[in-house]
Every structure is written in C-alpha cells, then in structure tokens.
Amino acid sequence: MNDLYIILTASLVACSCGLLGCFLILRKMAMVGDAISHAVLPGIVIAFLVSGSRDSVTMLAGASLIGMLTTFLIEFLHKKARLQTDASIGVTFTCLFAIGVVLISLFAGKVDLDQDCVLYGEIAYVPLDMILSPTGLIFGPRALYIMGAIFIAIVLFITFGYKELLLTTFDPAFASALGISATFWHYLLMGAVSATTVASFESVGAILVVALLIGPAATAYLLTDNFLVMLILACVAGVLVSISGYYIAVWLDGSIAGAIAGMTGLLFTLAMLFSPTHGLLFKKLRTTSDEVSSA
C-alpha cells in the first residue's frame, strides 16, 4: 500500500509539473520553475514564524505569495532595469533563497526546517503523514490529497484557458491586439507554477520539482509536433519516470527523488536519440538514405 501511495503522489506531482512545464519551455522560461522553487524558502519561513504552525495551508499561502513576488521581480528587472531574462532570474532567486537561509539560521531553534529538507525533500515519508478521522479511520496520506487537488486545479485551468494560454505563449503581441492580455495570463500561469512548486516540494523536494517541471515537457517536445499531444505525452512521461524511478530506488535501496530525477534524464536522452521526428538517430538515417538515393 505504501508503494502505491508514493508512486501515486509522485505521479500527480509529475503530471502537474509536466503540464505547466510545456508552457514554460515554449515561453523559454524553464528556469523560472527553478527560481520559484528556491525563492519560496523565505516565504515558508516567514509564514511559519508568523503563524507558528507547520500547517500546509499557511505554508502554501506564504510561499505562493513569495512565488508571485519572484515572478514580479524577474519581470521588473527584465523590463525596467533592462537586464536579460536569465540574469534577472539568477539575481532574484539566489537573493531570495539566501534570505531564507539566513532566516532559518537566525531562528534555527524555533523552526523545524532546514535547507536539506527543502532542497531534497523526502518522498518516502509521504505515507507517514496520514489524514485520520476523529474515530481513527485512515483516509490516506495528506500529500496525496494536496497533490490531487493541485492536479485537478491545473487540469481545469489549462482546459478552460487553453486558447488564451496557447496564444499568449505563441504570439503575445497578437494576443494583446485581440484584447487578450498577455500580462494577465503570464501572471496567472506563474501563480499556478508557484502553487504547484510549493505544494510539490514539501513532499518531493525542490530539485525533483525542477527536474519534473522541465524533463517530461522537454521529452514530450521532442516526440511530437502537436501541442495538445505534447501536454498528454508530458503526463505519460511523468507517470513513467515516477513508477520506474520508485522501483529503481527500491532495488538500489537509494533515494527515491534521486532515482526519479535520474529516470527523467534517461527518458529525455532516449527521446533525443530515438524520437521519430527530432531524434538524432532518425535524422542520421534520413540523411544517409538521402545521400544513397541522390547518389
């Protein structure tokens, strides 16, 4: 049963991240996920210090606010200070993460948090935090419910905002000319990335969140020329790496998050080599056969 809980939680994280990742990589903003997942640290610490509880909802609220602030700062530095996007991402998130680290070290005695737990997380502990009814009935792990809610919210968001998200990603100027605000949808998407990142990294850690935001989406990008198919393939890739990663970790008796991130890299490499449309192998075969037919 514990196996199933862990795999299910990992899959939900992977699917939510994979769906959002498709938009991020096509907007050339893949590293924004990285930035948010690190920059939310001070938000979590402040939320904890203010409320005094490690209750998920408080943490989620604090971290989401800081996540939005991060995307706002990145936009601000890029537009107003005329800094390149990658440079503004780099400056913003290292600075915010550092503030978080300082806060943790200042209040080390009072905060049951450390950098390791934030960065690496521990998905193996998912089955330990169960929701119990007053009579002692077990409803399942808390993380599973949180991730399930996030996943449903992301699917609804993409279903209802599909046209707008697609258009503002492909051609923001044209969208604005139609009266569809590119800025509004940008912040809505970034809000979704913040919430997902924060909810996910509590259970799986920041580094796995980054891997899942980019890896499955990048794999899907190499496998298709259709955006809708890309979204679906990103989810399939996410579920595949969650299952295979888990069993490899059990077999090796190693870190589950590490194995899942590793599988993400492996799956991407396979797609890069063997994709029917963009794969290096098929491209090579095609050029050779062209040479043969032209000779």
Binding site: L26, E164, L167, F170, L178, G179, N226, M230
Partner: peptide
C-alpha cells in the same frame, strides 16, 4: 518561434480566438 509545436491550421485558428 516557428519551431512551436503547431500546424498551419492551429495558427490560422488563433485568428478566431478574439
């Protein structure tokens, strides 16, 4: 970005979004 995963039809349909 003309490498965007979309077909000609997908792009033309964007004109209908407004």
């Amino acid at each position: 970005d003309w490498d965007f995963p979309a077909s000609v039809m997908d792009v033309v349909l964007m004109g209908r979004y407004g």
